[in-house]
Amino acid sequence: MKQLCLQADASYAGVRIDKYLAEVMSDYSRSFLQRQLKDGNVTVNGKREKASYKVAEEDEIAVLIPDNLEPDIQAENIPLDILYEDDQLLVVNKPKGMVVHPSPGHYTGTLVNALMYHCKDQLSGINGVLRPGIVHRIDMDTTGALVVCKTDIAHQSLAEQLKVHSITRKYRAIVHGNLTVDSGTIEGDIGRHPTDRKKMAVHVRNGKPAVTHYQVLQRFGNYTYVECQLETGRTHQIRVHMSSIGHPLLGDEVYGPKKCPVAGLHGQTLHAMVLGFQHPLSGEYMEFTAPLPEYFQKLLLKF
């Protein structure tokens, strides 16, 4: 049996523990988490609590996961576009349509399956069997640079850099409409959508601070090509923030128009182009650029 340890932050203070667990442990179903609460497999500060318990800031929450519920993730010989690699980490250029780590409905064909084949047993184990080596992620239909940790030392270093927002993350995107200014900053707390668990939203209860800077690169009348730089790293941050100012990403059927106006385009036009961080051992600043994918280049030429 595996134990997951969590610490509640201030944004969840006063939230029922069953709702808290559903948000922070989204890889597991609500019914599974409810069952663990009922069976006494969830403790808060060492004490068993019911589903109605309201979380307090800095609560130490432990959840026991039965062994037979951890899927057997298999290594798969899937080609990787590697931008950099050493004995501590590697930076990959993730293609469109690839899920980063296994989750319900996606236990094969993920980046983790490919990494397990490429790295063998040399991946950080901090995030468990579902997310070995994964310190941050990008959405299935988002392409671009992603750092993967081979050692726990590297994982801890990169996680701390993410926490203090010292990692450089610049994205390229095509958004609907013509932005009225050449650059700007979007600030708006992001949290789980109150009625749709698969979506995020701005200015919701329990939202966490989020800041996105954007710069117009080219205008196409009905669309605008932009660079977005993350100051924070919330789930779906760029997609949610750009939609919140009336300029959702082209192809994003979750936060934008339900029907994509460009035939053959699947998923949002979002590319993690630049990724920079301090190497966990040397402390040297390193920066990597993932070239725009072919589909993205063709769209720019088409407009």
Rank of each mutant, 00 (worst) to 15 (best):
E76F: 02
M25Y: 10
S244A: 13
K259A: 14
N127H: 13
E287A: 13
T289F: 01
N77M: 08
Y107G: 01
P261W: 02
Q229C: 11
E60L: 08
H213S: 12
D139F: 12
P95M: 08
H279W: 09
D67G: 12
E23Q: 14
A114H: 02
R137T: 06
V202R: 08
D59L: 04
R219I: 00
E287D: 06
G251P: 03
T289H: 05
Y28F: 15
L301W: 09
Q34W: 11
S183D: 13
M116L: 15
I65V: 14
R35H: 09
A10Q: 11
C260F: 00
A210W: 04
E70Y: 08
P95W: 05
N45T: 05
P102D: 15
M140D: 01
Q88H: 14
G233C: 07
L6C: 04
P79W: 00
K163Q: 13
R131S: 08
A10S: 12
A263K: 14
V240E: 06
R205W: 09
D189H: 09
M286N: 02
H136R: 11
S183N: 14
I238D: 04
G267C: 00
V99F: 03
C119P: 13
R131W: 06
H193F: 03
V63Q: 09
L270E: 06
H247I: 10
L249G: 07
V55T: 07
G251E: 02
L4M: 12
V44M: 04
L123N: 07
T168F: 00
E284M: 04
N206T: 05
V15I: 12
N178T: 04
D86G: 01
Y20R: 05
I73C: 09
L281I: 15
T195I: 09
S11D: 11
T143V: 03
V91I: 02
G14V: 10
V148H: 06
A8G: 07
A56R: 12
Q229S: 15
L230W: 03
I82H: 09
D81M: 00
Q268C: 03
K259G: 07
I186M: 00
H247M: 05
P291S: 12
Q34I: 08
